[in-house]
Design a binder for these strands. Structure first.
Length: 312
DNA sequence: AAGTTTGTTCAGCT
DNA sequence: CAGCTGAACAAACT
């Protein structure tokens, strides 16, 4: 369940260890963990063989390569290859993915799907383990393409180059090149519920189910209000609320952080935050005391205060 | 033991 | 083509 703040904490944690580091070895334990990786070569007919062939292609093309500085847009994280311009290791954590930095002698964590051995100029010999219980996350070696607006691709990115698989993702509210008016107009063009629009990463990125509920609670908007019926004033307030929940979570996530032990996962991260709406069904609204309501909406649970957040 | 939960992509509509 | 809906993916929970 990592959303933008959790992914950003991981990016910051990986930066010192990976920047300038060389991949001395790599092993894909579970071929499903890199389903985003598209082989450069044409592949076999059987899906099973195809997956293994692509896993081998991933290993072969990454071993011996050197990493540059990690970057992020929304929930997508990538590490450009310093010695192979135009390519980056791309990762998405899905719902349960973790990128763990370990020393060579540390015991295995659960669900290690891909392991890389790294020689880091700062920290010496390390392991980078991609762990994922539910396998919705994935790694890939991806090609870098130009950003649509010509600005640097995201946080940590120096160049206007973004992995092809993340190029359709909209900028997130913490991105220096994020535009409030572009995001507002994109939201107001849609007839779908405002919450559903927030979860669409092509309109604005980084927001998942939890922070969507929190930001809507903060700005007192009912999740099912059609996006095009939310006033400009309210949309502006909503964008400010998203900023606020992101910054707060980022500040909290960043404090308990150790460069050699990147272990930020959804669960422990969110537990540390004080949530006002998400997961608080039947508990009192911290603002007015009314019981928080939970509804199933677009195949997700939505939590809101029926008094503060009135339906339009 | 079937249902719930989560983010993204894609097929298939209007 | 743009916008939208629903299915699919995986596995640990209850």
């Amino acid at each position: 369940m990592p959303e933008l703040p959790e992914v950003e904490v991981i990016r910051q944690g990986l930066a010192a260890a990976l920047d300038g580091g060389t991949v001395t070895g790599i092993h894909v334990n579970d071929v499903r963990a890199r389903k985003r990786h598209k082989s450069a070569k044409s592949s076999g007919t059987a899906e099973f063989l195809d997956a293994h062939e692509r896993a081998r292609d991933f290993e072969e093309r990454l071993v011996g390569r050197t990493f540059a500085h990690p970057a992020r847009r929304g929930k997508f994280l990538w590490v450009p290859l310093g010695d192979t311009p135009g390519f980056a290791l791309l990762g998405h954590l899905g719902m349960s993915g973790q990128l763990l930095l370990r020393t060579h002698d540390q015991p295995d964590d659960r669900h290690v799907r891909v392991r890389m051995w790294i020689e880091s100029p700062e920290h010496g010999e390390l392991r980078l383990d991609f762990c994922d219980q539910r396998l919705f996350g994935s790694l890939a070696l991806d090609e870098l393409v130009s950003t649509h607006d010509g600005y640097a691709a995201g946080w940590g990115a120096a160049d206007p180059l973004i992995p092809s698989q993340a190029s359709h993702i909209a900028r997130d509210p913490l991105d220096p090149a994020f535009s409030d008016s572009v995001a507002r107009e994109a939201l107001q063009r849609r007839g779908i519920g405002i919450k559903q629009a927030l979860l669409n990463q092509e309109i604005m990125s980084g927001v998942g189910n939890i922070y969507a509920d929190e930001a809507l609670w903060l700005s007192r908007i009912h999740p099912e209000t059609p996006a095009n019926l939310v006033s400009t004033r309210k949309i502006n307030e909503l964008i400010r609320s998203i900023h606020q929940v992101f910054e707060k979570a980022l500040a909290e996530g960043g404090t308990s952080f150790d460069a050699l032990y990147v272990n930020v996962n959804g669960e422990s991260g969110y537990f540390a935050h004080s949530l006002n709406a998400y997961g608080r069904k039947d508990k009192p609204c911290p603002r007015c005391g009314t019981a928080i309501k939970r509804i199933a909406f677009a195949n997700r649970g939505s939590h809101f205060c029926p008094r503060c957040q009135r339906r339009q």
